[in-house]
């Protein structure tokens, strides 16, 4: 076990995670002020533009960072059977699903005042929904009653396939005609200063929140992994005890 793993899975609160947690909280308060009060309204979208400051960060952090952790964890697990990366992949997927749900909810709430509808089976929305369902499937595989090694291997394969789907999400606005606008931060984007700053702050804040959640979710996975090992040890010990007493019985 690497030293990073030892630190991450250590006692449930450490100086490092407390500092990270405090930074994430302060950053969140600033994001709320920036997003809801200090940043200007947009000329067409009016205040609905404010949803972008949580929508885009949820998408960047959830879809790329969190599911990226799942991808890396899955690949490393398949190559090296590393328990650390197997648990990391699981932790990333759970947080990613939460953020992916935020993307769809905030997108729908933005769609109603802007497009005129909450939901459209637009390529971007459809592919993002497919992503959510695939990773819910990943979490479902994680809960299946299977041999732990078989389960981890199946989950890892799904973790890699599901990430490939994200390339479709990324390119969906270019490949097909739909309602969703192009990339928010791209060559053609025109965004005024404080709006851009608020958006960047949102990405930073969500990254801090994600890092904090990932560390804690990893710890939980590690504890569960340890508990399973403990109960296995107990079972073996109990089996041995039985065996010994039955031998004793025969001797009498």
């Amino acid at each position: 076990m690497s030293s990073i793993a030892r630190k991450l899975a250590g006692p449930s609160s450490s100086r490092g995670t407390r500092i990270l947690g405090a930074l994430a909280l302060v950053s969140t308060v600033l994001l709320l002020l920036l997003g809801l009060i200090w940043s200007p309204r947009e000329v067409d979208q009016a205040d609905a533009v404010r949803l972008m400051y949580v929508h885009v960060p949820s998408a960047v952090v959830g879809l790329y960072f969190a599911f990226g952790v799942t991808l890396v964890g899955s690949i490393v697990y398949l190559r090296k059977q590393s328990d650390f990366w197997d648990l990391m992949a699981h932790a990333g997927a759970e947080i990613g699903v939460l953020f992916c749900a935020f993307v769809l909810v905030t997108g729908a709430l933005w769609g109603r005042p802007t497009w005129g509808v909450y939901w459209e089976w637009d390529p971007r929305i459809t592919s993002t929904t497919v992503t959510l369902v695939l990773y819910l499937g990943y979490l479902a595989v994680r809960r299946m009653d299977l041999d732990p090694v078989v389960r981890s291997r199946r989950a890892a394969i799904l973790g890699i396939i599901s990430f490939a789907n994200l390339l479709i999400v990324k390119q969906s606005v270019e490949w097909w005609r739909g309602l969703h606008q192009g990339s928010t931060v791209g060559i053609d984007t025109q965004m005024d200063g404080l709006m851009f700053f608020t958006l960047a702050w949102g990405v930073l804040t969500f990254t801090l929140i994600f890092a904090w959640l990932l560390m804690h979710r990893f710890r939980l996975a590690w504890y569960e992994h340890q508990a399973a090992a403990v109960s296995l040890d107990d079972a073996i010990a109990a089996r041995r005890g039985e065996h010994r007493s039955s031998l004793a019985g025969e001797a009498i």
């Binding site: 809801l36 309204r41 009016a46 205040d47 609905a48 949580v54 929508h55």
Partner: peptide, 22 residues
């Protein structure tokens, strides 16, 4: 204008984060 969509969005996201953390 459109605060009726903005507020629920922020509430869902930050309450969601709070509930998940708890």
């Amino acid at each position: 204008m459109h605060w009726q969509y903005v507020i629920p969005g922020y509430v869902i996201v930050f309450a969601g984060l709070g509930v998940y953390t708890a």
